[in-house]
Write a protein that binds this DNA or RNA. Sequence first.
DNA 1: GATGAATGAGTGTTCATTCAT
DNA 2: CATGAATGAACACTCATTCAT
Lengths: 190, 190, 190, 190
Amino acid sequence: MRVKDDIKQESLFEATVKLVNDVGFAASSVSKIAKEAKVSPATLYVYHKNKEDLLVSTYVEIKKNIGLSLLKDFDDSLPIRDIMRETWHKMFDYVMTHRPYFQYTEQFANSPYSELVDQEEIEKYFEPFIQVIDRGIKEKIIKDVDFDILAVFIFYPVLALANPKTCKNLDLNRDHIETAFTMAWDAIKL
Amino acid sequence: MRVKDDIKQESLFEATVKLVNDVGFAASSVSKIAKEAKVSPATLYVYHKNKEDLLVSTYVEIKKNIGLSLLKDFDDSLPIRDIMRETWHKMFDYVMTHRPYFQYTEQFANSPYSELVDQEEIEKYFEPFIQVIDRGIKEKIIKDVDFDILAVFIFYPVLALANPKTCKNLDLNRDHIETAFTMAWDAIKL
Amino acid sequence: MRVKDDIKQESLFEATVKLVNDVGFAASSVSKIAKEAKVSPATLYVYHKNKEDLLVSTYVEIKKNIGLSLLKDFDDSLPIRDIMRETWHKMFDYVMTHRPYFQYTEQFANSPYSELVDQEEIEKYFEPFIQVIDRGIKEKIIKDVDFDILAVFIFYPVLALANPKTCKNLDLNRDHIETAFTMAWDAIKL
Amino acid sequence: MRVKDDIKQESLFEATVKLVNDVGFAASSVSKIAKEAKVSPATLYVYHKNKEDLLVSTYVEIKKNIGLSLLKDFDDSLPIRDIMRETWHKMFDYVMTHRPYFQYTEQFANSPYSELVDQEEIEKYFEPFIQVIDRGIKEKIIKDVDFDILAVFIFYPVLALANPKTCKNLDLNRDHIETAFTMAWDAIKL
DNA sequence: GATGAATGAGTGTTCATTCAT
DNA sequence: CATGAATGAACACTCATTCAT
């Protein structure tokens, strides 16, 4: 038996991201993605059940990567503020070096497909980080507030800052990120 | 001669919002919108040059409404924190009572159509609010930070909190909003 | 009772000719013609039963004009060759000074609408000319050949020469026309 | 993988010709052609880039066929008059046995699509014939007249005679064609 | 008489997916 | 496994015509 070709798999992944970035979610048709990936539309269906599966698994793959890069060198023995700051910069680094991936997730999250994602599978990559926050609350370093509300001030600002649509007047650099982190920390710290 | 029918105009507006909320931006076709509005697809083109015009003008209309409801009873003689708090709650009220409108703008902002909007026309409705922030910076009440970064902590959290996709575990109430405002204020205040 | 407005009538005629010349028969829609004529599409239906009637009556009007300008100063006492030559040049003059009208008839004649024309109404304007040919045959000046075949050498060459599609390499002038007449006469004379 | 089906290609060609003959150029829609060819409208786009490509390539195909049938048994060692006569009859034969093809070219030539044809590709099939005319001029057998004017008397009459719209009173036969050839030759010979 | 609004039926084209090889 | 051909259904949009004023 021949084996599914990793190169084609990867090629479809990249083509999906590229096309969604170039022409938007709605205009990214299966045949265009296949052409971009230099495979036949029919081949796409060897690797994915349908269009939905292609888009969703591309999303999950990216989210997994983000999670993994945040976890790299993760050291939960540091003071909570340092962990947060470290993570904040890691997120910024990821977004800056993988802008197309990041933009894909933004577009995906606002599409109806997003409801098809198994959130638990993604959340497990962010679990250690969530535990740090819990610890921070217990240790009375972080405000004792519903997690979703905290998240809005911890995760979202990086996304918003990295999104060229929200921040079109600002040429983002590391200083901005450091400033924004201070603000985020002011928001959540007790 | 027949006269242009305000009811049809309005009906198209509501149908556009409803459909985008129900099935998402990408799946909202002209014919589905027309059917929802109970007019012929051809009639839609009496009121709008094309699909793009329908979507963009629906967006601008909503943004205008949001701006107007923020400006209602706007009193810039109050202390800055009070103005901010007042506005924060007004935004929350608007979002809660007009969730479909708000969700439409979220989806629109992440679509390629968003680049077609005349931003200046929208920004003028938010001008007074922006001046308050400027004043806050001058009076050394608010951190002297790039406006886009401040905006990320002032506007974005309400949107994120109101978005059921981001906050699916949280049944939002006014207490949450008050809490979040405190955090936002901690973030931006000097 | 208000009276139908000759200016609107004329305006529709000119708009029809212009549009067919500019964008072709197939792309000449009722609403475009109405817009070109600066009237409402509904107004068009005051003057014409439907689109077909508009196109056909525009054609007949032009054919009538051509016939009338051929008959002007028509003198059947002249020698037959002189009559033919005179007419040949008159046709050339008409075509040159009314190119859009002429081009309209060419497009119309090759459309299915052409079958709706009352040919007899048109032919009566060309009757005197036909009689000259009959006389020429009887007087053994013109070959005794079926009229349709003669027509192919008498009428068609002018049309073909005047048609920029057939004669795109040739910047037509009166000398060419004189040359062509000599050839046409050689073809039909005994 | 399925392989492109010559039968479908041919079927689309025939359907295009038939429909243009039956309902005219303007009324020949893609979906009607597809239905006539018994394929899906989508299939048509497997074989042709768009409607324009379908119509243009159908035209070029026919013109090529005409050229080839004129060139068959072409013998330029014969006297010029004989070559002309032979060609004249060949054209007549083609037109009579392929009337729908011929009528298609007539309609096409009067449509805006005609400007999209690569004329050079077509003219090469008629090249040998053009050289005979040049030779005739040099040998002082044919009048030394601009080629376009000669063409009007050599090519055009056959088309006009074969066109039922121009020759509706005449049931064309080979005698008529012989007569017409004599007249054409009278027109162009020195 | 004159008109812009209104529309069902149609336009050319692309879609996600399956078929046959 | 891999593919280009094939397609019914849908797309955004325009059509010729009629309606209501």
